[in-house]
Computed example of a mutant assay.
Amino acid sequence: MSEQPRPVGSRLGRRNDPDRRDRIIDACLEVIAHSGVTGTSHRKVAARACVPLGAMTYYFDGMDDLLQAALTRFATGISDRFERRMAGASDADGAREAVAAIILDDVFGDDRELVLSHELYTLAARDPAYRSITTAWMERSRAALERHFDPETARLLDALIEGLSIHRALDSRTRDPHEVRTAIARITAS
């Protein structure tokens, strides 16, 4: 007697949870934001995602595979928002204001994203596999900036955005929004 083929999207004849992998990735980002990369474990992520611990190895080859998927999703999401902001600018003044919004609203506005960014930076400083994530992120950022600025100015603005995010994360003083706009004006002055 021949075995019947399994329906698509099933494992052992049962329907898989089609969103499970995505929930695991999102849960991993939440665990990283709360506990850092070093405090992230399969057990914590599975509990956060409300999935059995065994699901972790079904969807990911190990913690490194999960971390790469999660941090790639994070960097891609940031890049998507960055591109939308820059695409919405119709002239140089609008582009300067978009850069200010990226810094003041997107980067400074969310402590979770600051933590995730710095966790990714730390991994990228040590491991080329994670550096490829940050490299792709920077390339997309500069390409979005180059819609309005020459390549050198785009690179300087990208460094300003990253640098100010580091200062924001590590400085206990509140940053003046005027300082951000002044820096953007100086970098983009012709």
Score class of each variant (00 low, 15 high):
residue 2 S to W: 07
residue 10 S to E: 15
residue 11 R to K: 12
residue 11 R to L: 14
residue 13 G to W: 15
residue 14 R to H: 12
residue 16 N to S: 10
residue 22 D to V: 10
residue 23 R to A: 13
residue 24 I to A: 08
residue 24 I to V: 14
residue 25 I to K: 08
residue 26 D to Y: 02
residue 30 E to P: 03
residue 32 I to D: 00
residue 32 I to M: 02
residue 38 T to F: 06
residue 42 H to E: 11
residue 45 V to E: 14
residue 45 V to A: 03
residue 47 A to N: 10
residue 47 A to Q: 15
residue 49 A to Q: 01
residue 49 A to V: 08
residue 50 C to F: 09
residue 50 C to Y: 07
residue 51 V to L: 04
residue 52 P to Q: 00
residue 56 M to V: 00
residue 57 T to W: 13
residue 58 Y to F: 14
residue 58 Y to K: 02
residue 59 Y to D: 09
residue 60 F to P: 08
residue 64 D to L: 04
residue 67 L to M: 03
residue 67 L to Y: 12
residue 67 L to K: 04
residue 68 Q to C: 05
residue 69 A to P: 00
residue 70 A to R: 00
residue 70 A to W: 00
residue 72 T to Y: 10
residue 72 T to A: 07
residue 72 T to K: 12
residue 73 R to M: 04
residue 76 T to F: 12
residue 78 I to A: 12
residue 79 S to W: 07
residue 86 M to E: 09
residue 88 G to R: 00
residue 90 S to M: 09
residue 92 A to H: 13
residue 93 D to K: 08
residue 94 G to Q: 05
residue 97 E to C: 02
residue 100 A to F: 01
residue 100 A to L: 04
residue 101 A to I: 01
residue 101 A to S: 12
residue 103 I to D: 05
residue 104 L to G: 02
residue 104 L to M: 03
residue 109 G to R: 00
residue 110 D to V: 05
residue 113 E to H: 09
residue 114 L to G: 15
residue 114 L to N: 02
residue 116 L to T: 05
residue 116 L to G: 09
residue 122 T to D: 13
residue 124 A to K: 00
residue 129 A to Q: 14
residue 129 A to K: 14
residue 131 R to P: 04
residue 131 R to T: 01
residue 132 S to G: 01
residue 135 T to C: 07
residue 138 M to V: 04
residue 138 M to D: 07
residue 138 M to N: 13
residue 140 R to W: 11
residue 146 E to P: 04
residue 147 R to A: 14
residue 149 F to N: 06
residue 151 P to E: 08
residue 152 E to R: 12
residue 152 E to T: 06
residue 157 L to G: 00
residue 157 L to M: 04
residue 158 D to N: 15
residue 159 A to M: 09
residue 160 L to R: 05
residue 165 S to K: 11
residue 167 H to P: 01
residue 169 A to I: 01
residue 172 S to F: 12
residue 175 R to I: 14
residue 177 P to R: 07
residue 179 E to M: 03
residue 182 T to E: 08
residue 182 T to A: 08
residue 183 A to G: 06
residue 188 T to R: 10
residue 189 A to H: 15
